[in-house]
Structure formats: C-alpha cells, structure tokens
Design a protein around this nucleic acid. Structure first.
Length: 185
DNA sequence: CGGTTTTGACCGGCGC
DNA sequence: GCGCCGGTCAAAACCG
C-alpha cells in the first residue's frame, strides 16, 4: 500500500462501489442555496457539478465548489465564509473526512422526513461547521455542507490525494493566514 | 474521567 | 405581535 492505512474507511462513495470514474461521480455541488429552502436539486438542474473547469482538471484533491457567502452584514465586515455542499450517494451519513467533529444539534427539516445534523470541528480555535442531511426524496443520497475554513491540519493528512479524489474542499487546503484571525473577536 | 451524543429548550430572523 | 423555522445551547446520558 502506498498509503499507510486509511484510518477511516468510510469513503464508500458510489464511484468506489460502482466503479465509476471519478470524473463522473455523483457529486453534485450545488451552491449552498440548495440547503436553504427546498433545494432545487433535481438532476436536471444540478448544473453545478463542481467547478470542473479548474479544479476538477487538477483531478486531485482540488475540488472545491465553494461559494462565497457573505456573512458580513454587519459593519462593512467583508467576512467571507466558504460554504461548500455536495451530494453523495452513501448508505452512511457519517463520512469521515479526517477531521474530528462534534455533533451539536439535530433538527428535523420541514418538508423532509429526514433530520439534519449539525457538527462542529472539535479542534479548538477552529469553528468550522458541517451539516449533514439526507436528500429529501432520495434517501440514498446524503447532502453534506461545510461551513468555513479549517485553520489547522487535518489529523490525518491525506496522502491519498493522488489515489482517490476525495472531496477536499479548499477548506482542506487551509489558507495560510489570509483568513485571519478572527474568527470571532 | 474526559469527550461526545442526545434531545428539548431557546433564540433570532422573517413573513404575515 | 405572533408563529414558523433554522440554528445553537446545554444538561444529562453515554461510552472508551
């Protein structure tokens, strides 16, 4: 094995099981908006299959369909928070991406039989949040959304990036320090 | 024992 | 102002 050991063999994504090509995976990155209200994610409108243009061509861990979400409604604060979301065909909704998450809430989504789970990065100082829910009508799909950017390395850096196209939002590639420092001050 | 999950309460924003 | 709704808190239960 080139890589040590996958600490979390949870990467049971469809393309792995079904042998699909990474570039044709079922990952549909729609903007965060899809989670806002009824999500418009029918296959016909799931236009945004990741930003294939630049990222997918990297064919490695560069995938990022991040949307800049202006959080700065207050005082001119251009606080841009990255929010990426994608849909995955998986039986388990617990997809471990290498980070440690602490669940802090669960809510039933209106209009959907499935609840939504809220997770937060366990690392102190890192306030990245993630929300996971199953697709409204297709329980085979799990929608995962990440909020924010990690300011620390993942406990288990992925060396497999050249091996499998994990979903590695640029959140993963963490920005040196551009982001700042103020997650909350 | 420490960290995590669970689950209902709580709160703020929004639409009516 | 009220109620709906999404998001978060927090206390107790759990688990290694």
């Amino acid at each position: 094995m080139a890589y040590p050991e996958n600490p979390k063999p949870n990467y049971n994504f469809s393309y792995i099981d079904e042998g699909l090509d990474p570039s044709t995976i079922e990952f549909k990155v729609s903007d965060y908006l899809m989670l806002d209200d009824g999500f418009a994610v029918d296959d016909s409108s799931s236009q945004s299959i990741l930003s294939s243009e630049h990222v997918a061509s990297g064919s490695s861990a560069g995938y990022s369909g991040a949307t800049k979400h202006k959080n700065g409604v207050k005082n001119n604060k251009t606080e841009v928070e990255q929010r990426i979301a994608f849909r995955t065909k998986s039986d388990l909704e617990i997809m471990d991406d290498g980070f440690k998450w602490r669940k802090y809430g669960k809510k039933s989504v209106k209009n959907s039989p499935h609840p939504r789970n809220y997770y937060k990065c366990s690392s102190s100082g890192c306030s990245v949040k993630k929300r996971v829910e199953r697709e409204r009508e297709d329980s085979r799909y799990v929608i995962t959304a990440y909020d924010g950017v990690h300011n620390h390395e993942s406990p288990c850096m992925f060396h497999y990036s050249n091996q499998m196209p994990l979903m590695v939002p640029n959140a993963w590639t963490l920005q040196p320090s551009s982001l700042h420092s103020s997650s909350s001050s």
